[in-house]
Design a protein around this nucleic acid. Structure first.
Length: 210
DNA sequence: GGTAGGATGGGCT
DNA sequence: GCCCATCCTACCC
């Protein structure tokens, strides 16, 4: 079934600017929080980032780089502003953006998007009929929806074809910090950041008891 | 409304 | 061989 496209891709590009490398060359948590509200663009589609997780350099046993430089984690030790894409559970590609200065392996997992443009393409890639709120509400779902695969591992996101953009006028929002999803190591750390109240998150917010 | 279990393959102890 | 930075379906309230 048809749905109106909230934006066209060209509208979004006209109203936004691609983030440059200095944006990414900062502490991982700072980059993670700053990525909320930014626009991920690839494959004729775009979405607003509403949920991310930080994977820290050094003392974070849940981070892939915790065990040091290996063939897989090589990109994490390279310059910031590049894509680190890995295969999760043998089935789904997950997208991270490399943060910190070169040589410091911090990264930010992109976990959920609010679909903005290219909705019919996103639907086609996801298959079946999907509610809008579930089109890209998870790290494996959003890569599928935007056609992001491990072929993009190591790609420079300050250039393309995969880019992150900032609207010239960004709507204000509140940030909520919670534990990371699907993580056993360091489960107490509040390294998942979401736009509070977004209906496009991978998990519903836990209701606090009265 | 909720959750248990299976599909599936790469990375590394 | 074991451990996953997941998702979907079936099945059960």
């Amino acid at each position: 079934m048809l749905e109106p496209e909230i934006f066209t891709l060209s509208q979004i590009k006209k109203d936004s600017t691609v983030l440059n490398r200095t944006f990414y060359a900062r502490p991982t948590i700072e980059v993670a929080r700053s990525l909320l509200g930014k626009i991920l663009v690839h494959g004729g589609a775009a979405g607003r980032i509403v949920e991310v997780e930080a994977y820290l350099p050094g003392d974070d046993p849940a981070a892939h780089a915790f065990r040091g430089l290996t063939p897989r984690t090589r990109v994490l030790y390279g310059p910031p502003g590049h894509a680190y894409v890995f295969l999760a559970y043998g089935m789904y590609d997950c997208l991270n953006l490399v943060a910190e200065p070169e040589g410091v392996p911090g990264c930010v997992l992109i976990r959920a998007l609010e679909p903005l443009a290219g909705l019919s393409l996103m639907r086609r890639r996801r298959g079946r009929t999907r509610r809008l709120a579930e089109l890209a509400s998870g790290p494996g779902k959003l890569t599928l929806a935007l056609g992001i695969t491990r072929r993009l591992n190591g790609a420079d996101v300050t250039r393309g074809p995969l880019t992150v953009r900032a609207f010239h006028r960004e709507e204000p929002f509140d940030i909520e910090a919670t534990p990371r999803i699907g993580i056993r190591q360091a489960r107490h750390r509040l390294l998942r950041f979401t736009i509070r109240g977004s209906p496009f998150l991978s998990r519903r917010p836990v209701l606090t008891s009265k």
